[in-house]
C-alpha cells in the first residue's frame, strides 16, 4: 500500500511537471524524482518480500493494509513538506524576497 500510494504520487507529480514544462520554477520535477526514488526502493523491498512470502504478499491483513496506507500518506506528506522547504529556500518567483523588502 505504501508503494502504491508513493507510485501514484510520483505519477501525479510527473504529469504536473510535464504539463508545466518547460517552466520548471515550481520544481515539480524534484518532487517527482523524490517519489520515484522512494517507489523504486520500495519496489525492491516488495520483490524481496514476495520472494519470501509468495502469493500471501498480495493478501495482507486489513489492519496491516490500513497501517501501510497511513504510512503511505505520511510519506507523501513528508515529501511535500521537503519540497515546500526547498521552494521557500530557493524562492523561484521571488515572492519571499519581495515580501521581506516590502517589510523594510
Amino acid at each position: 500500500m505504501t508503494l502504491l500510494i508513493t507510485v501514484f504520487a510520483a505519477i501525479i507529480c510527473t504529469v504536473l511537471w510535464y504539463k508545466n514544462a518547460p517552466d520548471g520554477k515550481m520544481r515539480l520535477g524534484t518532487l517527482g524524482l523524490m517519489f520515484w526514488g522512494a517507489s523504486l526502493m520500495w519496489l525492491v523491498d516488495a520483490i524481496f518480500e514476495y520472494a519470501e512470502k509468495g502469493a500471501e504478499f498480495f493478501t495482507p491483513a486489513p489492519e496491516d493494509m490500513l497501517n501501510d496506507a497511513y504510512l503511505g500518506l505520511s510519506v507523501v506528506a513528508l515529501g511535500l513538506a521537503v519540497w515546500l522547504v526547498i521552494i521557500l529556500i530557493k524562492d523561484p518567483k521571488g515572492v519571499i524576497k519581495a515580501a521581506l523588502q516590502k517589510g523594510k
Binding site: 524534484t30 524524482l33 504510512l71 521537503v82
Partner: peptide
C-alpha cells in the same frame, strides 16, 4: 534527488 529523496522517505 532520487537517492536522497528515496532515502529520506524510507527513513520515515
Amino acid at each position: 534527488t532520487m537517492l536522497w529523496g528515496g532515502s529520506a522517505l524510507l527513513l520515515l
